[in-house]
């Protein structure tokens, strides 16, 4: 049984903070857990904080895109926050532009972005 990444709830937002380098099985578990949690907690937004990650391979990159797509189907918006410059360069070199994934510089800006979109959705 491999480790699972905790998913925290703040209001209508789910927060996933990745603190260590990801193994493939953990990534798959996260995807599954997150889909389940979005439905259970009827979340409107998901924030994935990867500021602690130094290495992101193509698998993790694709997983981020997949999570974003899944949550969009479940009517929640995903924001990836805190990507490091080196990670961003690696992903671009790998040809992954994460189309459809929202990004923000840090957690605070990511929360602001989510709030903005729910506000405009209510109007």
């Amino acid at each position: 049984m491999s480790e699972r990444i905790p998913i925290l709830r703040i209001g209508e937002t789910l927060l996933v903070s990745v603190q260590f380098d990801l193994e493939d099985q953990m990534v798959l578990n996260l995807q599954e857990d997150l889909a389940q949690q979005i439905v259970d907690k009827s979340a409107r937004g998901v924030i994935i904080d990867i500021s602690a990650l130094e290495i992101v391979d193509s698998f993790v990159g694709r997983m981020l895109a997949a999570v974003a797509a899944i949550s969009r189907v479940l009517d929640a918006r995903t924001v990836v926050v805190g990507m490091r410059p080196a990670v961003a360069i690696t992903l671009v070199e790998l040809g992954l532009s994460l189309g459809g994934v929202d990004t923000a510089l840090d957690l605070e800006k990511g929360l602001a972005k989510l709030r903005q979109s729910t506000d405009s959705a209510l109007r």
Binding site: V80, M83, R84, P85, L91, V92, T103, A104, L105
Partner: peptide
């Protein structure tokens, strides 16, 4: 283009 996509990935 690469630079711009990388910046976008970081949220800028």
């Amino acid at each position: 283009l690469k630079t711009i996509v990388a910046a976008r990935l970081m949220g800028a």
